[in-house]
């Protein structure tokens, strides 16, 4: 077989400085403040750890993070201004923060996901039938065919 196996490396992105991370912590907490028993963005190590994985795979979100990080001022006001003036940039930044937050295994666990990444859970024998056991489909079948047959079918 003449198959060419290509190994695809993710985008090698920006590395944030300590000062940028500190600033990111403040801005990210405006996007994910925490509550309902869950940590804020900085409490979930978005700025120290998880943002790096976002930046590594998404050039567009990395750019949004960089563009917001250079804006000076009160974090709430800065992001309110971005949201009003450049909604696309706000979306990019918010999704970078949310993306980082939502890959933290602790966050995923608290949200009820079974694992840090998609988990294998093959169906149990009889599981498909069990859902239909109580005759839930009977009414659908009883109503009979609902399609229009081919008029000239041979």
């Amino acid at each position: 077989m003449s198959a060419v196996e290509v190994r695809l490396e993710p985008f090698g992105g920006v590395v944030l400085s300590a000062a940028q991370r500190e600033r990111l912590a403040l801005l990210a907490d405006v996007v994910v403040a925490g509550g309902a028993g869950m940590p804020s963005a900085s409490g979930a190590e978005v700025h120290t750890q998880w943002i790096d994985r976002v930046i590594a795979v998404r050039a567009d979100l990395a750019e949004a993070v960089s563009r917001v990080l250079v804006l000076e001022g009160d974090p709430d006001e800065v992001l309110a201004g971005v949201r009003a003036g450049d909604p696309e940039l706000f979306s990019g930044f918010a999704f970078a923060v949310a993306g980082a937050y939502l890959i933290n295994p602790r966050v995923r666990r608290e949200l009820g996901y079974p694992g840090p990444a998609p988990m294998k859970s093959p169906a149990l024998p009889g599981e498909a039938e069990a859902y239909l056991e109580d005759g839930i489909l009977d009414v659908v079948i009883a109503r009979g065919p609902i399609y229009r047959p081919t008029p000239d079918a041979r």
């Binding site: 198959a3 060419v4 196996e5 290509v6 190994r7 695809l8 993710p10 985008f11 994985r53 976002v54 795979v57 998404r58 050039a59 567009d60 979100l61 993306g99 939502l102 890959i103 295994p105 995923r108 840090p116 990444a117 998609p118």
Partner: peptide, 24 residues
């Protein structure tokens, strides 16, 4: 195009949702 190796696919990674929007 080429053959896609299953190990490269986004679904193997926690950031699979982010990968699905990237340059690959």
């Amino acid at each position: 195009g080429h053959w896609t190796s299953p190990s490269d696919l986004p679904g193997n990674h926690p950031e699979y949702e982010l990968l699905w929007g990237n340059h690959l």
